[in-house]
């Protein structure tokens, strides 16, 4: 015991205790971040840091500033709720530097089925197709304008009698063509179909209107040289025009 009547072992212990507590208080004063506890038990400046993250998706309003024509078309269409960047991808870069960054456009067949491919789990009534049989090989854009999608109505002028052909044709590359593009149909055929026949093309030039290498039809249509291709056969002797196969 010392003079104060405190047992001696208390003294070193008390000193250690005081040092530890003092070090703890000092550390708290020194190292706790400045803005900690300003609004709650967190670093208030963290909120600002999180808010300053870079924006990647610019938002459809931003697209409207330059592409107002497309925007307005889309606004009138079934895709009015589909944001531009839902298909074209994030475009904030494009808005900052329009020439350096160009957003992508999904032109193939892979993208649209993400929404429109048949899936029983989708809400009923939502327009869906079976990608395997729906005009295989053909880009969706050929028939559907994504900015103003309307269901392309395959011409059905002859389908009252030729339903089987119409069914095949409407999911083929030739879906949008009228029967009369290729067939000469006399008016009399509609009255007396057995006696007055609608003829198949009698020459190769009929197909050549679109498929000849010199034709001025849209680019994506496959081309051949009708002078040399297939020798003396008519086109439909090898190809089935109601369900043409590509590249074969």
């Amino acid at each position: 015991m010392n003079k104060l009547g405190i047992p001696g072992q208390i003294v070193p212990l008390a000193i250690i205790g005081v040092v530890v507590i003092a070090a703890f208080i000092a550390a708290r004063m020194l190292f706790v971040p400045d803005t900690f506890g300003e609004y709650g038990h967190y670093r208030a400046s963290a909120v600002e840091e999180i808010a300053s993250q870079e924006i990647v998706y610019a938002g459809h309003e931003a697209c409207n500033d330059c592409h107002d024509d497309i925007f307005e078309t889309k606004q009138e269409s079934k895709h009015r709720d589909v944001s531009c960047e839902a298909c074209h991808g994030p475009a904030a870069d494009h808005i900052e530097a329009p020439d350096e960054f160009t957003p992508t456009a999904p032109r193939g067949r892979g993208y649209c089925p993400l929404c429109h491919g048949y899936n029983p789990s989708r809400p009923s009534g939502f327009p869906q197709i079976l990608p395997k049989t729906h005009n295989p090989g053909k880009a969706c854009m050929t028939c559907h304008d994504p900015h103003s999608p309307v269901l392309p109505h395959a011409p059905e002028d002859c389908s009252a009698c030729h339903r089987d052909i119409a069914n095949v044709k409407q999911v083929s590359h030739h879906a949008t063509l009228s029967c009369r593009t290729c067939h000469d149909v006399p008016d009399e055929h509609l009255i007396q179909p057995k006696f007055v026949r609608a003829e198949k093309p009698a020459n190769r030039e009929r197909c050549g209107q679109c498929h000849d290498r010199d034709s001025d039809s849209p680019r994506e249509i496959p081309r051949i040289n009708i002078e040399t291709h297939g020798e003396r056969n008519l086109c439909w002797e090898c190809h089935y025009p109601h369900y043409p196969e590509v590249g074969k």
Binding site: I55, V56, Y57, G59, H60, H79, D81, V82, S83, E85, A86, C115, F126
Partner: peptide
């Protein structure tokens, strides 16, 4: 701006 997921959701 809306969150990115809301921005691109095609069916609201």
């Amino acid at each position: 701006l809306p969150p990115a997921c809301v921005e691109v959701c095609p069916t609201h």
